[in-house]
């Protein structure tokens, strides 16, 4: 049991939620998602994201189109599906609950 491990587990546990949140605001290229997540200091390496995006796509929470970018070949442009939005609203509730739980424990 080391702190780094637990920290990264916590970060990664929230990763799906964060990706869905980002895509709810606006559809994005994979590279944009990576950039935003890195800005938010959530992920360190890019490789973590590809399998996760594919899993989310396979569970029909996300969908993508191939869209030409200004620089180079067409790239995947991800957006949230309807199923994804429902899923996200469930996650938001449970995130709120988790938050309350933590606050409750902290303050008592």
């Amino acid at each position: 049991m080391n702190a780094e491990n637990v920290k990264s587990q916590m970060r990664k546990g929230t990763l799906e939620y964060c990706i869905l949140l980002l895509l709810k605001k606006e559809a994005a290229y994979t590279s944009d998602i990576i950039q935003k997540l890195q800005e938010a200091k959530l992920i360190v390496v890019e490789g973590t994201l590809y399998p996760l995006l594919t899993r989310l796509k396979n569970s029909e929470l996300l969908s993508y189109q191939w869209i030409e970018s200004t620089q180079g070949p067409p790239r995947k442009y991800y957006k949230l599906t309807e199923k994804g939005e429902i899923f996200l609203s469930e996650l938001e509730i449970s995130w709120q609950e988790l938050n309350d739980t933590i606050n409750h424990i902290r303050n008592n």
């Binding site: 491990n5 990264s8 587990q9 390496v45 890019e46 490789g47 973590t48 399998p51 996760l52 899993r55």
Partner: peptide, 16 residues
């Protein structure tokens, strides 16, 4: 590889 993540980094702490 540093940017994408080493294989151990990607799978050492599999959260999913």
């Amino acid at each position: 590889i540093k940017r994408m993540g080493k294989v151990e980094e990607l799978f050492g702490e599999e959260p999913f």
